[in-house]
């Protein structure tokens, strides 16, 4: 699904990480941890082509990121669901319309009932017609997750998706992502939350990647 070969990234102030080689297969489940500022968000941005690596090669869904045309990148993103750390929406459209956007903006049909089901799952049924700026931080994260999975993507990338949520809701969203993973979606979640990782590991075979000291280390199944 996603392949990194000797990837380094540098915003200009020295490399964040160096020579990262990792393969995220279909149906795999990965956590990404590391101290704040280590480069977790940067790693995820490389995974959906918002950034190009400073060196090395990133392959997304069998296409070399660097060689992709703009339309090919868009086509690739159609199949990747992203929960951005700062969850951006179209602020003048309802939550419901925002959640359906990955489908409608790419010409794919979507059933209203599917969107209501999804909003029910993330506990936002009552906010379906609300505008995103009126949502709380936790509600925004739930809406962003709903938007990321509405298209049943091949890959789900979530950047601290439970940062603003209480434990119960965090578990609920985690179950949703685990369900998606069971249907074949490769899942990558950046998080600090060790409890969440433990919770997930009880349900699914998950591996933990850790960025520290400019390296990406792949831990085993132990934590």
């Amino acid at each position: 699904m996603i392949l990194f070969e000797d990837v380094s990234h540098d915003y200009g102030g020295g490399p964040l990480f160096r020579d990262v080689s990792v393969r995220l297969d279909t149906g795999s489940f990965h956590f990404l941890t590391g101290p704040s500022g280590a480069g977790k968000s940067t790693f995820l941005k490389l995974c959906y082509g918002e950034l190009l690596p400073s060196s090395g090669k990133v392959t997304l869904l069998n296409r070399d990121l660097r060689a992709m045309s703009r339309d090919q990148l868009a086509e690739t993103r159609e199949r990747i669901g992203v929960v951005h750390q700062d969850c951006q929406f179209l602020d003048h459209l309802s939550v419901e319309q925002n959640v359906g956007l990955p489908m409608t903006a790419t010409g794919r049909p979507v059933k209203d009932s599917d969107i209501s089901d999804l909003l029910g799952w993330v506990g936002l049924s009552a906010q379906a017609d609300a505008l995103p700026p009126t949502l709380s931080g936790g509600e925004r994260q739930r809406a962003a997750l709903a938007r990321a999975i509405v298209s049943a993507p091949n890959v789900l990338l979530a950047d601290e998706p439970t940062g603003n949520l209480d434990w119960e809701m965090s578990q609920r969203l985690m179950m949703l992502m685990i369900e998606l993973n069971r249907m074949g979606t490769a899942v990558v979640i950046a998080t600090h939350d060790l409890n969440l990782i433990r919770f997930a590991k009880a349900q699914v075979q998950a591996r933990v990647m850790r960025i520290s000291g400019r390296k990406l280390q792949l831990a085993g199944s132990e934590l």
């Binding site: 703009r70 868009a74 690739t76 993103r77 956007l101 903006a105």
Partner: peptide, 16 residues
């Protein structure tokens, strides 16, 4: 800018 960023994120083509 935000509209364009969001549309890009969800895979919208330049044409759309």
């Amino acid at each position: 800018g935000q509209v364009i960023r969001v549309l890009r994120l969800v895979g919208a083509r330049d044409r759309f």
